[in-house]
Amino acid sequence: MNTTTRPRTATVPATPPLLRVAAARTTLELKGFFREKGAVVFSFLLPIGLLAVFAVAFADGEIFTEDSPGVDFVQYFTPGMAAAGIMMVSFQTLAIGIAAERDDRTLKRLRGTPMPPVAYFLGKIGMVLVTAAAQLALLLGVAVLAFGVELPSDATKWLTFAWVFVLGTAAGTTLGIAYSSVPKSAKSADSLVVGPLLVLLFVSGVFFVFNDLPEWLQTVASVFPVKWLAQGMRSALLSDEMEAMEVSGSWEHGATALILTAWIVLGLILAARTFRWMRRDDG
């Protein structure tokens, strides 16, 4: 019987460093994302399209006119669209994308390579950060150039914008990874992800004024992160005169930071406990 071993060099070559693999994963994810027309249209461009539809449908409209100061309709909904966009490119993209990768055994194949598992998640985070930043830049650019939306000029507003963006994106990311285990197949993923997210966006005051919702629905929505993300975005992109128009009469930055962070942690715990590299029927 053949018992010879292959000649081996004394030093085993080191596996490639984590950050290099993570960067390569990010590039790969971005290529895959932007080449898939469905994903680009329904998560990346949708909020911008919706803003345009709102702007055209409600041209010259103002809200809160009886309560003064009154605000331009498009101006008011721009932060809501920013919140919707963040949830779409983080939660929706990841939940659908990872469910599909689990279903077609991409995840299983990756697990069979020396790719560090962390690199996979870093690649997803990298993709979400780049697409979310690009989407917000495009959204705000279109809002300003095409619809005359005014952006804040003072730095504290942009600082608020930054931390709300980071917390909101992080919550959408961890929850998206966790939620990817809910659909049993790639086919059911679209409806199982988009349906609940749309409902959540509606009740969170993204598509209309939160104050107009019945009180019980406001209470329900306050449990979930989107309401706080949208409110945080309003606090960053609207003038402080609008603060009085919030249901509580305050931007509630403390509560926003706390609740978004709680969702990030919950998403992390759920993702860590439920994430699987293999399909359920794959043992």
């Binding site: 070559p13 080449r35 898939e36 077609d104 194949r109």
Partner: peptide, 27 residues
């Protein structure tokens, strides 16, 4: 490992997929 019934990487080219996976290995 060559598994059965694996899919994925639909929008990437053969060249891109192979060069990417090469980056996982030490040699």
């Amino acid at each position: 490992i060559v598994l059965q019934n694996t899919g994925g990487h639909d929008e990437l080219t053969v060249d891109e997929v192979i060069r990417h996976f090469a980056g996982y290995y030490p040699a």
